[in-house]
Amino acid sequence: MKDSMQKKLLDKFYKGTLSNKDKGEFSRQLELDGFKERLAEGVIKHHARIQLKEQLGNIHLEMQQAEQKATTRNYLMALGVLLLLALGAAFWYFSGDTNKESIPKEELPEVLFAEHFKTYPNITSVRSIEDEKNNWEKAMDAYKEEDFRTAVKLFSGIPDTMSNAYMFYFYKGNALMSIEEYKEAEKAFLETTKTDNDLKIDALWYLGLIALKNNNLEEVKRIFGTIQTQYPNYKKAAVSDILEQLEY
């Protein structure tokens, strides 16, 4: 039998397509050494393929496990983030400001200051008429741009003889606070409080915050106590909070 015929017979055997006639031929061929050798070689080849396929199957399994791990890890991470957010939100919602209980007492004034200090918004309407008012206008522009250092410089060039000087001191105080010049800021706010004006209570508030920043608790108590008594509706919750936190 020709080589090609033997090959065909073996191919049919591996494919499982031997006819009854082929089976007879297959049995006869098994007597021949050449055919047996071909069969043996085929068996070795197929066995190697089976082993290789098992090896590839293991790689696939490994890859799937890595994928599952990554998916689980991503899922857990997402869950963790959600849980943290939920816990944070719940804690914040239910505890109100009591979270400050965990803050060391000596750090509390600083924390309260950071929490409550915001520069006063520019609600002025400045129009230039004279030269000195030009500086005022520029200063407020810088203030609006949150360029507080420039604002402070420009405020310093404005004569305090203006009719609305209390206002210029008030904004100057805010600008000074923003660049952490608390001592100078205090002076500016005190100027605002010297007269009866619409920003007096606000200046008092900022003076209270400066006292907080300076950890001058007696002054904090005095100023916020005054606000609470004389202006009971002014920043009511914030004032109460500060006094309660500091156990007054």
């Binding site: 049919k12 055997f13 499982g16 031997l18 082929d22 089976k23 297959f26 049995s27 098994l30 050494d33 047996k36 050798e37 069969l39 043996a40 068996v43 070795i44």
Partner: peptide
């Protein structure tokens, strides 16, 4: 060895024929 194993094992021969 392998060739002989195929031919000498009765069960192998029978299986071979069955599989065919």
């Amino acid at each position: 060895y392998l060739k002989n194993a195929i031919v000498n094992s009765k069960s192998v021969m029978e299986t071979l024929k069955e599989l065919g």
